[in-house]
Design a protein around this nucleic acid. Structure first.
Length: 221
DNA sequence: ACCCAGGGTCATA
DNA sequence: TATGACCATGGG
């Protein structure tokens, strides 16, 4: 299929169709960081419950999470799935955060250096690191997720099997480095991505409609 | 009863 | 370098 669109055009179309998304849900940078770990391969509704448990237990702070017993932390995280692994990941992230001198200090670290530091924390991979950079620290970093691959490979703009860094570079080169815009774009991609079925290359219904029925048509203009 | 969700790590070839 | 198993709950 021929690409009759482009990365910036997709953004403008998604924004025109869906408007502002008001992301990331979370009242503080730290809550956003916690959410970024908890939402790994997990529906956000489940993450909200886990975060609500932490808040109710007054445990939504680096110190409280570091001090919590793994069993207790796992109990609070249970609704978000993978609770044993995520308990360890949150502890690792909080230990790192405290060792760095807290959010105030961390927020002054240059983006590339901060990215490398985040990737050094056990349980923080490329996407989680970029979620944190973009949504918690307002850095102009483009987040690549499964929906990004799905949507843009269907549009013929990427293959979809590229490595994470390769795709991130491609998107960042195609756009102005505007954190607010990257924020909206990724949010729109996730919201729109939910309307697109996962079946490859296309399910029968999508073939007949020449696109996924419940999604807007991003392929033309 | 399946499939999927706002991934990452580790072992294996 | 590139797949596959594993982690685990909750909604459709």
């Amino acid at each position: 299929m021929k690409a009759s669109t482009s990365i910036p055009k997709v953004y403008h179309k998604l924004f025109a169709a869906n408007g502002k998304q008001h992301w990331w849900p979370g009242d503080s940078a730290f809550e956003i960081m916690v959410g970024a770990v908890l939402t790994q391969n997990t529906a956000w509704t489940n993450v909200e419950r886990a975060i609500a448990n932490l808040i109710q237990a007054r445990a939504l702070s680096p110190k409280a999470i570091v001090k919590a017993h793994p069993r207790q932390l796992g109990k609070w995280l249970r609704p978000s799935g993978y609770f044993n692994i995520k308990a360890r990941r949150l502890k690792a992230m909080c230990r790192w955060l405290i060792a760095q001198g807290g959010l105030r200090k961390i927020s002054k670290i240059p983006t590339n250096e901060l990215r490398r530091a985040l990737l050094g924390v056990r349980g923080i991979g490329p996407e989680t690191a970029d979620d944190i950079l973009l949504y918690a620290f307002n850095r102009p970093v483009f987040v690549i997720d499964a929906y990004t691959r799905r949507i843009f490979s269907r549009l013929g703009l990427i293959r979809g099997s590229e490595k994470y860094e390769s795709l991130r570079h491609k998107f960042e080169m195609a756009l102005e480095p505007d954190a607010q815009m990257f924020n909206e774009f990724h949010a729109l991609i996730v919201v729109h991505g939910k309307d697109i079925c996962k079946k490859r290359p296309r399910c029968q219904i999508c073939v007949l409609a020449s696109r996924c029925p419940s999604s807007i048509d991003l392929s033309r203009r």
